[in-house]
Design a binder for these strands. Structure first.
Length: 266
DNA sequence: TTAAGTGTTGCTCT
DNA sequence: AAGAGCAACACTTA
């Protein structure tokens, strides 16, 4: 579930910690650490001042000055929470940063898919992980997007979800973007003409920005989902919010994509 | 009660 | 080499 808009909200949580010092770091699950041992990470984090937060695709970076950047990935259902002094530790806390002032920054990850690492910088991490440009990067423009589509032999949904081509979009938002652009998910990417590519690019930008603006990111706030979004109907038995037709599904390996067979024809 | 579904990355297989 | 498919995980729903 944490795709670009969700991680953008986690970034704001991280930003609220700007200026705070990590008095102590506690690794709750060493199995989520990549390339560093628990004791070493705790030692490297301790005493550091949080200087801000950055995002690239689905990855979040907590900036720690000379210590580099703490890189967090949320897998399928991870999250980041600021926990008040005296409040109980949330379930599934896998890393906890105890901050000056008494609050704690808690990285939660029930399913333990995702990871924690320490990198020199966001740029260094992005290069090492071979991530494509962030889907909302202003420098990633329509010509660059259209070139990706033309180059690919795959279907358009796979292209949208490929983090090496563009970073930030997963199963849920690829469905949403294709629905908004009225494009069938199984369409060959290279078969989209300039008009369709432009429509898709606009829908991508618009959908992600709207999701961030509405603070979609938790089921608790589903009321905030715009009425024309596929999201709240995105389930077995769901109906198109635009025309009322029964939604259809398309299998992508083990994952299910939803689309409206009437609004998104082959 | 058991089995399938959920979503992401990284691995294997072709 | 590019692309497809599955394992890993914990929990919910059929």
């Amino acid at each position: 579930m944490p795709e670009l808009p969700d991680v953008e909200l986690f970034k704001r949580v991280g930003e609220r910690c700007r200026g705070r010092t990590i008095e102590r770091a506690v690794v709750g699950d060493p199995g989520l650490l990549n390339g560093i041992a628990a004791a070493a990470l705790e030692r490297r984090l301790r005493g550091r001042r949080i200087e801000g937060a950055q995002r690239h695709g689905k990855h979040l970076f907590i900036l720690l000055g000379e210590a580099g950047a703490l890189a967090l990935h949320f897998g399928t259902n991870g999250s980041l929470r600021l926990v008040a002094e005296g409040e109980a530790e949330p379930p599934y806390t896998r890393l906890e940063l105890r901050l000056s002032g008494g609050e704690r920054l808690a990285y939660l990850n029930p399913r333990r898919i995702g990871g924690i690492s320490l990198s020199a910088s966001r740029a260094a991490f992005v290069a090492a992980a071979k991530l494509g440009p962030d889907a909302l990067d202003p420098a990633f423009d329509l010509p660059a997007f259209a070139a990706l589509l033309r180059r690919s032999k795959r279907d358009v949904k796979s292209v949208l979800m490929d983090q090496a081509l563009l970073a930030g979009i997963g199963n849920i938002y690829s469905d949403e973007i294709l629905f908004q652009a009225r494009i069938f998910p199984g369409t060959a990417a290279k078969s989209l003409d300039d008009r369709a590519a432009s429509r898709l690019f606009g829908a991508m930008r618009e959908t992600l920005a709207t999701a961030i603006r509405c603070e979609i990111g938790s089921e608790q706030f589903l009321t905030a989902v715009p009425k024309d979004f596929l999201l709240s109907e995105r389930r077995q038995g769901g109906h198109c919010p635009r025309c009322g037709a029964a939604l259809a599904t398309v299998k992508h390996g083990a994952r299910t994509g939803y689309y409206c067979p009437r609004c998104q024809p082959h």
